[in-house]
Amino acid sequence: MKLYLYAFTDRPTAGAHGLWGEPLLGVPVGRFFAACGPTADAPAVTATALRGHDAAIRSLAGSCQSVLPVRFGQLVEGERALREAVQPLASEIEGALARVAGCEQMTVRLFGEEASSAPAASGTEHLLRLRERTARRAAALAPLRQTVAHLCVDERVEAGTGRLLLTVSHLVRRGRSRDYRAALEAAVPPAGITVSGPWAPYAFGPEVGL
């Protein structure tokens, strides 16, 4: 039987269920656990499956202090294959689990004017565009950081394309997401910014493999 992976946790899973309603197993790997469910095949990419994957991960937060989500679609052949796949990443996963303990993620997207899609007429113009884009990103990020610095444990920033300047993921203590939203609503003009969360800390795991 194959195992579909949902998350890594600091404790065995208790009462959590997966995409197909299956009780989740907590397979011990070193000093943490891999929360997974037995299945024959990987799920197809449907809205139901995506929401179900997320719901299973959220349910793990009820019994675990640290939950590190696994990306959708990760399937292994069984417990042995699971350990072989995860063991080389154990120290990175342990570190990430310690980092996200007692935390949840807020995700902010900062939008601006669309970058020109026309090819640059020269190398100089290309570099000038890059510099302008970088400056816009920095100008958008600074007030956000200042506003929520007192709530943030950690941060991940990802550059966007088109109108999306940046995606900023902030790790905040569980229970502080309302304060995070309130701080942003009070300080930052709503145009050009979207906030979502709380999420499990999707953006704070090590990206390795594949």
Partner: peptide, 16 residues
Amino acid sequence: HVLNKGVVVRGELVLA
């Protein structure tokens, strides 16, 4: 979040 983020481990990845 679910498709673009999260830990990636070696294994069978079949998305369609």
